[in-house]
């Protein structure tokens, strides 16, 4: 190992230590899928925030970095972030970038809207042949994942 290599490794180690970069969570987009790319981005982030894998206050990649990594249009990522902001999952600051928002007590109107959406989803699942037990297990699995994540720290890339 040459001096340049040692120096670069040292520099990189310092950088990683300062930013606590271990194995980061990864966001996946499947361009062969029927779902729009911005919905896939929003859904991927929503799930990680809901399970606690991305903690409140955690900074998210800037629009340009995320779009560059995914090879998608800037507007696609911006649209996903705006959608998540409307839903209360993230906060967008002009200069500081995007960060995960803390869970907030939803108002009556929002609760009613979510209940309606949940009822629609349940109806779709029932129509697709899901049993009540399967739906219950899916709910428990989602809430269990969140409890596990908040108890044991963020997991690796999945």
């Amino acid at each position: 190992m040459g001096p340049l290599d040692r120096w670069l490794r040292w520099l990189y180690t310092i950088q990683c230590t300062m930013t606590e970069m271990t194995s980061p969570a990864m966001l996946l987009v499947d361009r062969s899928g029927a779902t729009a790319v911005y919905e896939q981005i929003a859904d991927g982030l929503r799930r990680r925030i809901a399970t606690g894998e991305l903690a409140p206050g955690a900074p998210l990649p800037p629009v340009r970095t995320l779009a560059s990594d995914l090879g998608v249009n800037l507007n696609t990522v911006a649209r996903a972030y705006r959608l998540l902001e409307e839903e209360g999952f993230v906060r967008i600051h002009d200069r500081e970038g995007v960060e995960v928002a803390a869970p907030a007590e939803a108002g009556a109107a929002q609760r009613a809207r979510l209940r309606t959406q949940f009822a629609t989803l349940l109806a779709c699942m029932r129509q697709a042949g899901f049993t009540a037990d399967e739906v219950r297990r899916a709910c428990e699995s989602e809430f269990g994942a969140r409890a596990g994540a908040s108890g044991g720290g963020a997991g690796g890339g999945s």
Binding site: Y12, M18, T19, M21, M26, L27, S32, P61, D69, L70
Partner: peptide, 17 residues
């Protein structure tokens, strides 16, 4: 085969000097 997956790390990367 289908187009490859697109992947992005969600953690902020180390600052790039």
């Amino acid at each position: 085969g289908p187009p490859p997956l697109a992947v992005a790390p969600l953690a902020l990367s180390p600052p790039s000097s």
